[in-house]
Amino acid sequence: MRHEGINSGMSPNASTATPLLAVRGLTTAYRGLIAVSDVSIDVDQGEIVVVAGANGAGKSTLLKSVAGLERARSGAITFFGERIEAMPGHVITERGLAYVPENRRLFPGLSVSDNLRLGSYLYRKRADREAPLERVFSLFPRLKERLQQRAGTLSGGEQQMLAIGRALMTRPRLLMLDEPSQGIMPKLVDEIFAAVQSIRDTGVTILLVEQRLAESLEIANRAYVLQTGRLILSGTAAEVRDNPDVRKAYLGI
């Protein structure tokens, strides 16, 4: 059974009871080393939640575990009331959880339009496949201009837009983004962050991993900070921003 996706029109901050995504005591090894250790996080419907931390803190492994691309050693992951930690990645995507990997991971040999189409092949009906396309074009008009170009020939920023657009074609409830600002010129970074906000405003919850903590805290509701695989801090965006250790270690203030 498929969910209704981004057209479901659920209002932000509607939920108070159970979180959309609940990670409990997650431990995951990456290449034999424990990369995420006993981490618990919640993401509520309509939020933007940021996961911050230095390189190697386990942020990407956390997202991959949720996306079903790395297997958890222990712990539970509940998404929309369903346990997903043992599901294969493609089933998790069908449940409405989309993941934009680090470094974008496009299909460079395929055209922009084919990359987008791949995201929508979950759906059998043509109408279901084409419905999200308009939304992607209105978020990122540049993609519409470059439909026939090979994905590999796009600039870094355009590639990131395509990666996000491709994930939106699966019509997710929750969109997980891994370092969307990496390797992108500053002007486009603002554009990406603005797009993340407007995606949230259409009812898609966001879980964001970012190195640029200052900018991401500006758009986030809450944040978690990881260090060497462990959760060391969590709170509202303002609380995390005002934390003295965070200011010293990550914000350079």
Binding site: G89, H90, F107, Y121
Partner: peptide
């Protein structure tokens, strides 16, 4: 991996 994350079996 990217394919899997887009729902490809």
């Amino acid at each position: 991996e990217a394919a899997e994350s887009l729902g490809v079996e």
